[in-house]
């Protein structure tokens, strides 16, 4: 028995060690990003043999941010605004369309419902990055290229989103809807007054997924947007495509792109986890 306890203690020790070590390694790039954004370029890299790059924050954050702001071809603060507007409008629209569509699929019976649904499921296996060529032709022909709509509309019909809403809405009891109908509610009122309020946590979960998806899009905005309309990923890639990369500016831009999202994500990550798992993870 004593031996068994000892063995158990060894397992626990190993498990904790592994967990803490991996967590520290994973957190290090984030810590380093914060530090590097406050350093002058010369301190980000080692100077000579045996010399270390600085591992504690410096005082150059504002200077780096000013240098970044002074580059018109990057226009970083404008790109932050662009990204924010695009992601917010996109999330709102996609939530509306996916929840309406999900409601129809979950709570009505109609012809070709299964065919429609299978069509949506089929596109889940399709990497969206690959539709860029025909989309580009389509969007430029519609006169939408280099506009916010060019980045918002093509992905507003998010297949995983309508699927997710349908699954969630199937849990609403039909008797509840029938009761509302008896009271004279129209079908749209049903959706707006009964269904949406009871779907708050599912909507929040989907919102986090949609926002992250749009926030991270890179290939499509790179193809369809021109100067002045860049989103954050495109603007950062412009800092890097210069012959002499200004690493201090790069780090301050990356920090501003990543760190605020982390704060929001920590607050909302419960929804994100629910979104991908439907509450399957317990404490």
């Amino acid at each position: 028995m004593h031996e068994k306890l000892e063995k158990e203690a060894l397992w626990q020790f190993g498990g904790y060690g592994f967990l803490v070590a991996v967590t520290m390694v994973m957190m290090f790039p984030i810590y380093w990003l914060v530090v590097a954004s406050t350093l002058p370029q010369s301190a980000i890299f080692a100077g000579g043999a045996g010399e270390l790059p600085r591992l504690i924050p410096g005082r150059n954050f504002l200077a780096n941010a000013e240098a970044l702001a002074a580059r018109p071809e990057v226009d970083f603060y404008r790109s932050m605004l662009n990204s924010l507007v695009i992601a917010v409008v996109y999330t709102g629209l996609a939530l509306l369309f996916c929840s309406m569509g999900g409601f129809a699929l979950a709570k009505y019976e109609f012809k070709y419902k299964r065919a429609l649904f299978m069509g949506i499921l089929g596109t889940l296996l399709l990497p969206t990055n690959l539709l860029v060529i025909p989309l580009f032709l389509l969007v430029s022909n519609m006169g939408l290229s280099n506009s916010y709509w060019a980045v918002i509309l093509p992905w507003a019909a998010y297949p995983l989103g309508i699927f997710f809403m349908k699954q969630a809405m199937q849990s609403i009891p039909d008797s509840l809807l029938e009761a509302a109908r008896m009271d004279g509610a129209s079908e749209f009122q049903l959706y707006y007054r009964v269904v949406l309020p009871s779907m708050k946590s599912s909507l929040a979960a989907l919102a986090v997924i949609l926002f992250l998806f749009q926030w991270n899009l890179f290939l499509w905005p790179l193809v369809v947007l021109r100067e002045g309309k860049y989103t954050i990923p495109v603007a950062i890639s412009k800092i890097m495509s210069n012959d002499m990369i200004a690493y201090d500016q790069l780090m301050v831009a990356s920090a501003m792109a990543i760190v605020p999202m982390f704060v929001v994500f920590i607050l909302l990550q419960r929804h994100f986890v629910n979104g991908i798992l439907g509450g399957a993870v317990k404490e």
Partner: peptide
């Protein structure tokens, strides 16, 4: 631990690539 380990999912793809380039 779960929150910390999940954080990288929310990192902007281009921005985090830049961090790795610098490292």
């Amino acid at each position: 631990f779960r929150s910390l380990l999940l954080l990288p999912v929310s990192a902007n793809t281009v921005a985090y690539s830049a961090v790795f380039i610098v490292i």
